[in-house]
Design a protein around this nucleic acid. Sequence first.
DNA 1: TTGTATGCGTTATCAA
DNA 2: TTGATAACGCATACAA
Lengths: 337, 337
Amino acid sequence: MAKASSVKDVAARAGVSLGTVSNVLNRPERVSPDTRARVEQAMRDLGFVRNESARQLRAGRSRTLAYVLLDARNPFFTDVAEGAERAAEGAGLSLFMCHSDNRAARERDYLAHLVEQRVQGILVTPVDPDAAALAEVRRNGTPVVIVDRTRSDDEFCSVAVDDVLGGRLAVEHLIDTGHTRVAFIGGPDSIGQVRDRLEGARRAWSDAGLPEDQLTIVPTASLTVVEGRSAGERVMGISKRRRPTAAFCANDLLALGLLQQLSTSGASVPGDLAIVGYDDIEYASAAAVPLTSVRQPRQELGRRAAELVLDEAEDPDHVHQQVTFTPELIARRSTLG
Amino acid sequence: MAKASSVKDVAARAGVSLGTVSNVLNRPERVSPDTRARVEQAMRDLGFVRNESARQLRAGRSRTLAYVLLDARNPFFTDVAEGAERAAEGAGLSLFMCHSDNRAARERDYLAHLVEQRVQGILVTPVDPDAAALAEVRRNGTPVVIVDRTRSDDEFCSVAVDDVLGGRLAVEHLIDTGHTRVAFIGGPDSIGQVRDRLEGARRAWSDAGLPEDQLTIVPTASLTVVEGRSAGERVMGISKRRRPTAAFCANDLLALGLLQQLSTSGASVPGDLAIVGYDDIEYASAAAVPLTSVRQPRQELGRRAAELVLDEAEDPDHVHQQVTFTPELIARRSTLG
DNA sequence: TTGTATGCGTTATCAA
DNA sequence: TTGATAACGCATACAA
C-alpha cells in the first residue's frame, strides 16, 4: 500500500500552508472560495483521508463505542447491538461489535484493546459480571455499561430485563390456559437469568395456590437446542398420569429443541405438551408450531445502554443507574392450539 | 472520567525520564531491574494504559481488522466472522464487526470510518459488490477483501463458495433419491447467488436428461421465512398430478418457512414434499424435520479472507486472487424420510 | 543503563 | 484571509 498523504502533502500540492488545509477541513467558512477550491482539488488528487489516530490523539477522545457480546450467533445479542448501533449513529459515533464467544480470555483481550484505543465507552455482556476486569476497565478511564446482566454491587450502570417477572408471565399464561402440571426446563442455575426465571415461575405457581410438586424442574446443562431435545425425552418419559401438560423453557433454543423432539416422536404441540419459550427470537415465530415466548425489548436495551455509557462519558455528575425493562408475553400456537 | 495518565506522568512519579518508561514497555531487558520495578509500580499506581492512537500514529499502522457484514442476524455471516476472528487472533490483531444491515449508507459510513482509523484491512460482504465505494477504499490506502460475493472485475481479492456447484449438488441429490418433478424456490434473481444456485440446479437437471418443464421455478421476493411460507402455499396449490415432489430452496430461511407452512397444513416432509435448503445454519438441523442442506465452509471463508487481507497489507508483491471454496451436501431427514 | 530530542498527523492559537 | 507554531502521547535514534 502506498503511504497515505497527510495535510502537509495537501498543503504542498495546493501551495498553501498546512493551517489553511486544516481550516478547509474544520472551518471552511474562514477560507476564501478559490483557495478552498484549490485545496479541495489537491485533496481529491492525492486521495487524502483524515487520520483518525492523529485527530483522536489531538482531541483526546475517539468517535466510537464498542459492544463486547457473548454470542454472535444468538439473535438476542445482535438485536441489542442493533439498538445500540442506532443510538450511536444518532450521536455521530460508530459502534464496533466484539465477539467474546463466551471466552474470558478473549473478552479480556478485547477490553484491553478497547481501553487502549480510548473508545468513548464500552457496552458489555460479560462472561462473569462480577469479574474484577470490569472494574479495572473503568479505573483505566473507559466508561462501561453492563448489558443483560447485573452485578452484585452498584458500581456500574446496567440495563437488564426483569426475568423474575418474565418467568411469572410465562407460568401465569400456562395457568390461565388451564394447566396444573407444568415443567420448568432450564439450567445451569449458575446463570442468574435461569434462576430468576424459575423464581418467577415459582411465585406464579404458589400465588395460584397450586401444589408445589406439580411444578417439575427439568435441569439442563446449557441453553441449547440439543439440551432441549434431551429434556424432551425426559419429560415424555414420565408416565402419562404424572406427566406435565405444559413446559416453560428458559430460552427459545431449548424450546425449539423440545419442539423438535416432540414432533419427531409424534407428539402434538400443544395437545400433548404446550410450550412457552423465552427471548422471542425470530426462529420462535418461524418454528413448525409457532412458539409462545417471552419477549424482551432487545433494541431498547441496546439503545438505553448506549445512552448511559455516553452519559457516563460526558457528564461529570453522572450517577450510575440500574435500568430494568419489562418483558412481554407473546402468545402463539404452541400454547393456544 | 479522570484524564488518563501518560508515560510522562509515569516518568515523573517514578523519578525517571520518559524514555526509560518507554523502554520498560518496549525493551524491558535494557532497564535495570530496580528502576524497572519502580516504573512498573508507578504504572500500577496511576492506572497507566498505553494510548493506542499515539502508538498507531507513531507506528503508522494499526492492530485491527474489521469485517463489515450485511446481516448480523444471519448465522452464516457470524460464522464467517468467527473464522476471521481466529485468523486475526493468530496474527495478534483484533477483529471488529460492523453491521451494515444491508443499508448502503451505513456501509459507506463504516468504510469511511475504518479508512480514517487506518485499520490494517477490511473484509466486507458488500451491499453492492460493484460499488465504486470499494475501489475508493482501496485507493485511499486500506486493503479490502470481498467475502461471499464476487465482483465483475479482478481488482480485489475475494473469497466465495461455488454456488453453481452447490445448486448442482442439491438437485443431483433429489434426482438420486428418485424425484422427477422439482421446484426451485428463490429470488430475487438480482442476487448473484440465487442465479448461480438456480443455474447449478438447471445443469444437474438437464445432465440427467429430465424434461425442462418438470423443474418449476417458484420466485420469491426475498430470502426469508415469510417468503418461504408463501412459496409453500403456492407449491401445495398445484394440482396433485403436476405438483413437484421435492423443493430446492435458495437458502435455509426459505426452507424453514416452507417446512412450517407444510406442517401447519398437515402435509408430510419428505412424504408429500422433500426439501433441500442452503447454508446449513444451526437451525436447519434443529428444525422439526431436520433439514437437508448445502453447507458452505463458513469459518474457512473468514479465515482465508483474513489471510488475504493481511497479505495485501504486508506484501508489496501482493497479487489479487479470487478464492472459490467447494460446498458440501448434508443429507438429513427432510429428504431421506 | 539512562536521558534528550525528534517526528508521526492533526487541530488550535496567535501573529501577520 | 493566511501562515507559523505548539501540543497531544508514544517510540526511537542518539548522546551522555
